[in-house]
Amino acid sequence: MHRRIDWPAHLVLLLGVALFAFPVWLVFAGATQDAGAINRGDLSLIPDFSHLGIFLSVLLHGYGEAGGHPAWRMLMISAGMALSIAVGKIVISVLSAYAVVFFRFPFRMAAFWTIFITLMLPVEVRIIPTYAVMADFHMINSFAGLTVPLIASATATLLFRQVYLAIPDELVEAARMDGAGPIRFLFDMLIPVSAANMAALFVILFVYGWNQYLWPLLVATDPRLDTIVIGIVQLTFGGFTLTPWNTMMAMAVLAIVPPVVVVVAMQRWFVHGLAEVEK
């Protein structure tokens, strides 16, 4: 059967794509141009392909003269932080949701509501007390200081609680009759059954961790712990006579790549997982 092309729909879609892709293209094109030209406002939309080497040089050497770190180091710090936060959040919230949903203990609901209330206290709100606590623990300027305060997650606990509440009682009872204890039930039933949710959450949390700015800025003043986001910002306010826009844009392009890889890689997996979900 011949299908007529729906022009208006395609036009809207193309516009949408352009709207999202244009800034990314602009940054990519800008990275290959001369910093002076960008400062004058002569930003061309056509990349200068002879300068593609800037990506490699930023990756391996950073902005050499100013003493900056190579981007690969900062990417590693960012990746380590984002991974630790995402995995840590998932582990902690799976355990707390498991406890809240499947066990009867005193003050169970009080515990749940306490977790729930922290939804209203993101890092930005509690940043000074959190910094004080980290200082008391001598965790300033350490990788642990960078990640630990961001790991507790009310959102993820809430999400897993809903997922676990939707698991039929009979499934739990069948596992009990089969002789599965609490630990076995967690590993043999809950985790495989909620794997798709964990994948979806991992994507969101990885991007959340990757984009952290305020907390790393405050807690890790040691340049060896600079994340890629901090690195980009430092190029802006680094006291350069001429802001190295092209280096900054190259770094921004490099900074986008890992989250995109995670999203694309996991998307295939979690859409697949969601499609196979069954009660």
């Binding site: 039929p168 009979e170 499934l171 009872e173 069948a174 596992a175 009990r176 009759m177 089969d178 002789g179 599965a180 043999d188 039933m189 495989p192 059954v193 794997a195 069954e278 009660k279």
Partner: peptide, 20 residues
Amino acid sequence: LDPAARDIAMVFQNYALYPH
């Protein structure tokens, strides 16, 4: 005794098969 220690097997109304 715990259900598992009773040596009893049960067939549930909605079958309660492990989906994964």
